[in-house]
Design a binder for these strands. Structure first.
Length: 586
DNA sequence: CGGGCTAACCCGGTTTACTGCATAGTAAA
């Protein structure tokens, strides 16, 4: 094996293969097959190498004989013949043209074959010289559109997606501004924002209003708008100062349900839902549900109506990713998803004793005011110098303050004494066992050496998970959205070990992390892990970030029972006390 | 190319809008 590929890299290779086959004019079903395989590999909760070794690649939807063989070749030899051949036949610079609006595979093929154009620069030159309009299927107008498209791609400040936490305040600001416009009946943000995906491509707003023009006017003149890309009577498009694009669409109130459903997506979900509709004799569009035989339109004012008329339970937006939710809704086995109100406490909280902004008292009061029954105080351990990590001596001093705060706040609320203990580079923990044993609950995490090789990182996590006094693994992958990839580790082995030992895995609610990521969280639940949702709050205001973590858990199909901080405190502590016994059994 | 089917095979991922051209390519959820 020359190198190890991630699921994402392999998915990307099959994406590229699909693009190149498409440019070559391959039959659409073959292209689609590679795209479908790529999507399913990217959404796989487990390491593709494990499936490979088990001979179970064919269990991935969309992977049959031919693609199995190609994955095998890639993992075995580090190379893929088909991919190498296509790359030698098709200039890679052609693939960049796909970003240009109105340039699809057919047109890319045309300019390449007829004019020998292989780069965006050459395309721009040819367009300026008026050479495109002579091609069959091209015209002067399309030529200028392509030119404008190239300009737009060049000017675009942020090409990629932004973390949900960045999009969130922008969307809230826009929603509250539009809500103020008189005559607004309904208003919603749709798209990946509504599905609470960890990153957002653009913002989509829908509105039903008496005076749509006034809403459009307000939308396009908001202070956070940098440029108005388009302003019409039913749709406006703007670029925000952050580079994010936002669209606003006007919807008839009577058609609100089908429109909101459509614009919420995901694309995969919509395709599957429409297929399902066809099977039941309906055609579904953003405008209506139409009986195919009679062509009679049924207008749906609510999303609930859309799903109900199709014989489905209502599918919450977080589940709409085309990952089995329609089948589950049909069979009435959608999970009762966790909600914020189910949570009884927060299991990662910092104070000024280490790098927090507020005292234990302030944090405890804020948590109590939110209706929580408990918080686990988890200041950093000694070796994390940058965060003022606590020595054991300081930890004992801290205990006295915790006791005082507990006495002050009285029954019905408790500050638990814990710590966020470093898992050191060699897998040992940053406090001796007798110190760990004296804490109510121990959270362990990796902050350094995330770039270690796979075997070492995995071994560190496994050591921590098999430790008798480690109860929770915090922000497991260590990723920082848009900044840093998570650790490369054998997650399947780690999740299995966590399930076996009853070690809880954290969904860190901080929108910069959202870690565990939704896909790994779902796999963890499949393997029988229990999870916790924690904010990692360093100030009282950060307790409010919890909804981001709840969203990740919902996207992982988590029920309240799956999340240990919905449990009563006694159950949680009993679960932790069981760990040494569980280890002996394992 | 995948998958369901009864086979050495055939059908298949939705719906709508727009453009610019006359039948189809592209984009969007």
């Amino acid at each position: 094996m020359e190198r190890r590929w991630t699921n994402q890299e392999i998915a990307q290779i099959f994406e590229n293969i699909a693009d190149m086959l498409e440019i070559q004019g391959e039959i659409p079903y073959k292209v689609m097959a590679y795209r479908r395989a790529a999507e399913n590999i990217a959404a796989l909760g487990r390491d593709i190498y494990d499936l490979w070794q088990e001979g179970a690649l064919r269990t991935i939807p969309g992977v049959g004989e031919a693609i199995e063989e190609k994955i095998d070749q890639l993992l075995r030899t580090g190379r893929l013949e088909l991919y190498e051949r296509l790359k030698s036949e098709i200039p890679q610079s052609l693939l960049e043209m796909r970003q240009i609006p109105d340039m699809g595979p057919k047109r890319i093929k045309a300019v390449w074959e007829k004019l020998g154009i292989t780069t965006v620069e050459e395309l721009e030159e040819a367009a300026r010289a008026g050479k495109l309009r002579n091609l069959p299927g091209f015209g002067a107008k399309l030529e200028s559109k392509i030119l404008a498209g190239i300009e737009a791609v060049k000017r675009r400040k942020i090409a990629g997606r932004v973390p949900l936490g960045v999009a969130w305040p922008l969307a809230q600001e826009i929603l509250s501004a539009l809500q103020e416009v008189p005559g607004v009946h309904r208003l919603a943000a749709a798209g990946s924002f509504r599905r609470m995906k960890d990153t957002i491509g653009d913002l989509d707003f829908l509105v039903a209003a008496e005076d749509p023009e006034a809403v459009m006017e307000r939308f396009t003149t908001l202070p956070i708008v940098e440029t108005v890309l388009l302003k019409g009577s039913t749709k406006s498009s703007v670029r925000l100062r952050t580079g994010l694009q936002a669209d606003l669409r006007v919807i008839e109130a009577a058609r609100w349900g089908t429109a909101l459903q459509y614009f919420t997506g995901s694309q995969q979900h919509n395709i599957q839902l429409r297929e399902h509709a066809l099977k039941r004799g309906y055609s579904l569009s953003e405008y209506a549900l139409t009986r195919v035989e009679t062509e009679k339109e049924i207008l749906c004012a609510t999303e609930e109506e859309v799903y109900t008329r199709l014989g489905l339970a209502y599918i919450p937006p977080e589940l709409r990713e085309g990952r089995g939710e329609i089948e589950a809704a049909l069979e009435g086995r959608l999970p009762r998803l966790i909600e914020i109100e189910d949570l009884q406490g927060d299991l990662q909280v910092h104070s000024t004793w280490s790098d927090g902004q507020a005292s234990i008292r302030e944090m405890a009061r804020a948590a109590k005011a939110k209706g929580y029954r408990y918080i686990l105080l988890t200041d950093h351990s000694q070796s994390l110098g940058v965060a003022k990590g606590l020595t054991p001596e300081r930890l004992w001093e801290q205990r006295r303050e915790i006791e005082a705060v507990n006495a002050e706040l009285g029954d019905g609320f408790r500050v638990l004494h814990g710590a966020e203990v470093e898992i050191r580079a060699d897998g040992s923990l940053d406090y001796p066992d007798e110190v760990l044993a004296a804490l109510d609950l121990v959270v362990a995490s990796v902050h350094t050496g995330l770039r270690q090789d796979r075997e070492r990182v995995t071994a560190r996590f496994l050591a921590a998970i098999r430790h008798p006094y480690v109860h929770i693994i915090a922000h497991p992958t260590g990723r920082l959205l848009g900044e840093r990839e998570g650790a490369d580790a054998d997650w399947e082995a780690i999740l299995r070990a966590a399930a076996e030992t009853g070690t809880l895995l954290e969904i860190n609610a901080n929108p910069a992390r959202l870690d565990l990521p939704d896909i790994l969280a779902r796999r963890a639940l499949e393997l029988g892990c229990k999870l916790v949702i924690s904010t990692d709050a360093h100030s009282p205001g950060e307790f409010d970030l919890i909804h981001f973590g709840v969203a990740v858990a919902r996207r992982a199909w988590a029920t309240p029972e799956d999340i240990a901080n919905t449990w009563p405190l006694e159950r949680l502590l009993a679960w932790a006390k069981e760990k040494p016994r569980r280890l002996r059994r394992a």
